[in-house]
Amino acid sequence: MSDLPYSKDILRLAAESVGAGRLTPPCETGSEFNPACGDRSIVDLRIENGRIAAVAHETKACVLAQASASILGSALPGRRVDDLAKLKSDVLAMLKGGSPPQGPFERYAHFKDVAQHPGRHTCVLLPIEAALKAASQAREPRS
């Protein structure tokens, strides 16, 4: 029997919605759309010297995606841009039954029960993918 992936921690994270809003330019922006449900997460990153100085997100989505975005809102400032790729692979590994991420992203452990709901994995990943797209913009030369 599967466990309900809506713990009090998840619901609280979604309600807190840390980092909700948009940054004032200059910043990098990434947007990710879930074609299965129409949800969208837009993540703004201000990147300075390879580190994320500020983050904001606009996440019109389910509880799981909102909680995931909220973790990014609190944990990303001060992290290296390269940490995002590792975060994605760590979260993916956890959703396939592995250990949760450690360190600043340890609160992704709250999503461990989502592993039993394959159709919801993309919900957790939605804001991470948006953040990765924003980070990739930083590598593109500005026109």
Partner: peptide, 12 residues
């Protein structure tokens, strides 16, 4: 309530 959240709870 998001439709996917509702559907997940119904699924359980």
């Amino acid at each position: 309530m998001h439709a996917h959240d509702v559907a997940t709870i119904l699924d359980l």
